[in-house]
Design a protein around this nucleic acid. Sequence first.
RNA 1: GCCCGGUUCGUCUAUCGGCUAGGACAGCCCCCUUUCACGGGGCAAAGACGGGUUCGAUUCCCGUACCGGGUACCA
Length: 505
Amino acid sequence: MSKRVRLRFAPSPTGGLHLGGVRTVLFNYLFAKQQGGDFIVRIEDTDQTRFVEGAEEYIFETLKWCGLEPSESPVHGGPYGPYRQSERKDIYRKYADQLVKNEQAYYAFDTPEELESKRKEIPNFQYNQLSRGQMKNSLTLSNEEVNQLISTGTRHVIRIKVPENEEIRFTDMIRGEVIFHSSQADDKVLLKADGMPTYHLAVVVDDYLMKITHAFRGEEWLPSAPVHILLWRYLGWADEMPQWAHLPLILKPDGNGKLSKRDGDRLGFPVFAMDWTDPKSNEKASGFKERGFLPEAFVNMLALLGWNDGTGQEIFSLAELTEEFSMDRVHKAGARFDYEKAKWFNHEWIKHSTAEKLEPEVKKLFLAKGISVTDQKKFEHIIELVKDRCTLLADFVQQASFFFQSPETIDIAAIQPKWDDKKELFFVELIRAYQLSALWEAGDLEKEFKELAAANQLKPGELMLPLRVMLVGGKFGPGVFDIAVVIGKDETVHRIQHCLQLLRP
RNA sequence: GCCCGGUUCGUCUAUCGGCUAGGACAGCCCCCUUUCACGGGGCAAAGACGGGUUCGAUUCCCGUACCGGGUACCA
């Protein structure tokens, strides 16, 4: 019997969740679900100084919006809690002490100031096998001195003692075998002076205690993997170490480096999943949700950033992704984010969604614009008429508000240059004809329109655009006669009349 | 600097030694549409470089270049 697959996403609550974070969640989630396993969210809040109010709530709201709900977390509960590292503080100390006792870690009394001046003095100072002999720690101090310092409450940390000449290797699910030399690793702090563990200790202890079988995280963690491997070994858990996978990064669309919050503002696209306002700086960052993305499209787009199924298929539902996802088809290299492609995914999802599905979100947007929807059937019909033209949900407002209210602006300039008395006469007659018509159906309206045009010796083509502008306000939208049907006889006549007024000198 | 990772059209990518290097986005053109889209068709566009290995390298190995990540009592 193989172990039950368990994966975790371990964000620190320091701000909103951006693209890369959600993609990491996604890959964790997909793999876990595919294997019939568990997806867990653990909050890594060991750095009290970076705690940001509301960030944790934001993370869970984002996961909910994306449809990537964990089965265990501080809010969902579960048998391996608590799931917030700050609430597990007592657990880590024990393991840190164990490491010290086994001489795999040691107390260090160097103050932050001392270390800082050391770094100034020596450009690339590392606290490692070369330098630890010159520092103030339980390796260089006598037992009495150490006990003295500790008993008098001197602030100190616990650092891992990295072995001197050893190869540390492991197999990454994406990159294959990766080899590090222990001589390159430094003696990372495991337990901070405030008694909190650093990420390095906490991640190993918690992954072990929570029976994590696969640890997927961003590539930025690759360099600290050797420390974590060492810890798994030191703690005697090597046989239960999860399989690692370091996911490729999402890069800026232009220039160099990984995608950051600032790129969004600079280039005009969202980077966060949802709108986020930093409570301290009040800085705002816009999100995909509020920009008018469907969660399905957002998730779909993220999945294809670094993964593909090899068939050329690009549109996948979450269920399909769960079915098809495989780690050995995850690309190794970082991917530049392309907002145009992201919009394409959304457009595809809007086109393929039913009006019924789209309706609630679109309705909210209309309400925000002061347009309330009374006739549900009619509203869905309108959505059906315009959805092919909407890339973002917000586009529905621009594409369909004229169905509910007279156009705010009318592009008179589009018809004025070719306007003449003959055309005016035609429209006057058209009004009469429409007023008299018993039926109000697209085919009939078009027939009447064309017959009247012929009678006036005018080409329908010259008249269709003016009619469109009169009804819609501009050169866009679905078929004119479909529009006339929806807005009804009175409104159609009214809008034509209104424009005829505008066109009179 | 040092360590680790990466390198196919502008972008996302396919190719598990046989390639006329395929697809998608964006771009351009045409058709459909008497609007704008949708849809259909087409054009243009790539293996960083140098060495090996091999009958044959985009694919395997080495070097160089370039890009990225890391180098905190941050995650």
